[in-house]
Design a protein around this nucleic acid. Structure first.
Length: 423
RNA sequence: GGAGAGGUGGCUGAGUGGUCGAAAGCAGCGCUUUGCUAAAGCGCCGUACCUCAAAAGGGUACCGGGGGUUCGAAUCCCCCCCUCUCCGCCA
């Protein structure tokens, strides 16, 4: 959520920044400003009336305690009370309208973000490693998986429909090994606090991180309409400290969490790909940071580096790209995507998206800290995958497949997997 | 699922219809005094919003959330959420 005062005082700046995202958000500003004016008028009027009532009511109390009559005053205050009822309703309505408008507005992109309308304008920031050279035609993960019994898409579809996977045998063990490897890496070596949060989330927390109210159709909701399945651990973990006032020495707070993630992929019907690339339920290890505004940009670089470590240790070639203004997510001010090379796909796969949300989420969830001058300010929140499992799985088996059809397990993963190869 | 108790400022906790934004303690900040890594005394110390060109100032709201009663609600009534205790059930 954007600060209404920023919009009020620098409408042109906000409009110009929002416009770089494309879409229509920047066209809403005049409506918001008009609503804000209206809202303040009602509020001022309401405050006058409340003041009158408060003052006169006290007078009544004084008179009564002296045994005097106060009927005239009481009639007068009753009249004020009726007006207050009306004005309160108007003020509350204006307030709600304004809040709803603000909740629909995306975050402002960082001033230095590349401007663009889609992914084609995303600059490559850095590349690690090189595309592996195989002296045979690489199989894709679906073929490998079928041959080695790593997962079963057909039977998963029988149970749950298309877009679900059931890992099996060595595949299930490999997936579990990857999760544990990532959790250990980030908690032990990068000093993130490991948490294991709930997967069912209340509406208000979904609003806190920005999934609601705008993207409800992408979420799995339970019948009662109150609880939602977590689309990412970002939601429960970032909300851990909602409605809290954190002390400066506590920051930054860094969390790592493994959760399954549930996504309808409603708009992606045509983009559902074969295999594991896009599924409705997948496992992910997520990194979350709560920081001060002063350190959040440096923390974004650090967090991205931590996510990259996963790929480096597993010997997977990847590139980091910076998202241009038009390609960024709703709440993000700056995002790096990490894309791992998958030889069987002959393509880079997005396995991590690392973002600084600045105070966008903190404002929605009322997450503050007390700064060194004793002032309460909104935190900055960051998150990034560290990393998403199915695509990591794909890149791993496609990269480390051998000519004889077996898969070599990278050394750092062997203690977790319990073997050096799958055949 | 049943019964009961409770939710008050950064934290602990008093307050059952008016002068209560709210005692007290802790933490924090400032000053004074004594002085070996500290103690004592005194003072200050909530948040949001509105108003003001700005600062100063002024004002309103907020005692889990929402509604109601009343001239007036932290306080009384109703609904919801959450926490704790006991019982039941259960991995």
């Amino acid at each position: 959520m954007l600060d209404i005062r920023l919009i009020r005082e620098n409408p042109d700046y906000v409009r110009e920044r929002l416009a770089t995202r494309g879409g229509e958000a920047h066209l809403k500003l005049d409506e918001i400003l008009a609503c804000d004016r209206q809202r303040r008028e009602w509020e001022t009027r309401l405050q006058q009336l409340n003041g009158d009532r408060k003052r006169l009511s006290k007078e009544i109390g004084m008179k009564r305690s002296k045994g005097e009559q106060a009927e005239e005053l009481e009639t007068q205050v009753r009249g004020i009370g009726e007006e207050i009822t009306l004005v309160t309703e108007q003020a509350a309505q204006a307030d709600e309208t304004q809040r709803n408008l603000l909740l629909q507005l995306p975050n402002l992109p960082h001033d230095q973000n590349p401007i663009g309308t889609d992914a084609s304008a995303n600059p490559e920031v850095r590349v690690w490693g090189t595309k592996p050279v195989l002296n045979f035609a690489p199989a894709d993960h679906v073929t490998l998986g079928a041959k080695l019994g790593l997962f079963d898409l057909e039977r998963a579809a029988k149970i749950s429909g298309s877009g679900f996977v059931c890992f099996t045998g060595p595949g299930a063990r490999l997936e579990r090994a990857l999760i544990q490897f990532c959790l250990d890496l980030h908690s032990r070596e990068h000093a993130y606090l490991e948490v294991s949060p709930p997967f069912l989330i209340r509406r208000e927390s979904m609003v806190g991180t920005g999934q609601l109210p705008k993207f409800e159709e992408d979420m799995y909701g339970l019948e009662n309409g109150e609880l939602f399945l977590a689309p990412t651990a970002e939601v429960p973990v970032t909300n851990l400290h909602r409605d809290e006032l954190l002390a400066l020495p506590e920051l930054p707070k860094s969390f790592v969490a493994y959760t399954p993630c549930f996504r309808r992929e409603a708009g992606s019907a045509g983009r559902m790909t074969r295999g594991l690339i896009r599924v409705h339920q997948f496992d992910k290890v997520e990194l979350v940071k709560l920081t001060t505004p002063e350190t959040s940009w440096a923390e974004l670089e650090a967090l991205t580096g931590h996510a990259e470590q996963v790929l480096q240790r597993l010997g997977l070639h990847y590139r980091v790209i910076e998202l241009c203004t038009g390609d960024m997510g709703f709440g993000s001010a700056k995002t790096y995507d990490i894309e791992v090379w998958a030889p069987g796909q002959n393509a880079y796969l997005e396995v991590s998206s690392c973002s600084n949300y600045t105070d966008f989420q903190a404002r929605r969830m009322n997450l503050k800290f007390k700064d060194d001058e004793g002032k309460n300010r909104f935190c900055h929140t960051l998150n990034g995958s560290g990393t998403a499992m199915p695509r990591l799985f794909v890149a791993l088996i496609e990269t480390w497949q051998q000519a004889d059809g077996s898969i070599k397990i990278p050394e750092p993963l062997q203690p977790y997997f319990g073997a050096a190869e799958i055949r």
